[in-house]
C-alpha cells in the first residue's frame, strides 16, 4: 500500500499520478506498437526500450473474475468482493476491482465494463470497473 512505497518508481509513478486524476495510463512500444501493461521500461515483446506513455479509454471485456469470500486480513471487512481481469480495448490486460456500489452488482466473463477510479484500501485511487 502507499505507506510501503518509500522510494521513487519510474515505472509506476506516472501511472499512479494518472490514477489520482482518474486517468488510466499504459505504455505503448514505439518499435512494435504493442500495448504494455503493467507499465515498464522495456517492451516485453520486442525488447525496445522507453515505450511511450498512452491513455486508455478504460473500456474492456471481463476476461476472468472471482468473488473472494475468505479474504486476506487487511480486506476482511470488505468480503465478499469481486476481483477481475479485464481485457482493455487498447489491447492490454489488467487486474481491477468490481465497483461494490450498488452491492448487488455482478459480472460474468465476457461482460463489457468500464473503469472508474475510487479509493482502494490504502486510500489511494485504484482502478475499479463497473458494467456498461
Amino acid at each position: 500500500m502507499a505507506e510501503d512505497k518509500n522510494t521513487l518508481d519510474p515505472d509506476a509513478d506516472p501511472y499512479w499520478e494518472g490514477a489520482a486524476k482518474g486517468v488510466l495510463r499504459y505504455r505503448r512500444c514505439t518499435n512494435c506498437s504493442i500495448a504494455i501493461f503493467y507499465p515498464r521500461s522495456i517492451c516485453p515483446n520486442c525488447g525496445a526500450t522507453d515505450p511511450k506513455w498512452a491513455v486508455s479509454e478504460g473500456a474492456g471485456v471481463v476476461y476472468a473474475c472471482t468473488t473472494v469470500h475468505r479474504a486476506p486480513p487487511a480486506f476482511a471487512e470488505r468480503a465478499p468482493y469481486t476481483v477481475l481481469l479485464v481485457d482493455l480495448d487498447e489491447g492490454f490486460r489488467m487486474m481491477g476491482g468490481l465497483l461494490s456500489e450498488p452491492c448487488e452488482t455482478t459480472v460474468v466473463v465476457g461482460d463489457r465494463v468500464t473503469v472508474t477510479f475510487t479509493d482502494g484500501p490504502d486510500g489511494r485511487p485504484a482502478p475499479y470497473f463497473k458494467p456498461v
Binding site: M1, K5, D9, A12, Y15, F37, Y38, Y63, A64, C65, T66, V68, R70, A71, P72, A74, F75, R78, Y81, V83, L85, M94, M95, G96, G97, V109, G120, P121, D122, R124, A126
Partner: peptide, 21 residues
C-alpha cells in the same frame, strides 16, 4: 503494486481466476 489494491488472496485467488475462465 498493480494487483495489491484488490485483495486477491494469494495463491488461491489466482487459481480461482483461471478456473473462472
Amino acid at each position: 503494486q498493480y494487483e495489491a489494491p484488490f485483495g486477491l488472496p494469494t495463491p488461491v485467488g489466482a487459481y480461482a481466476l483461471a478456473a473462472s475462465r
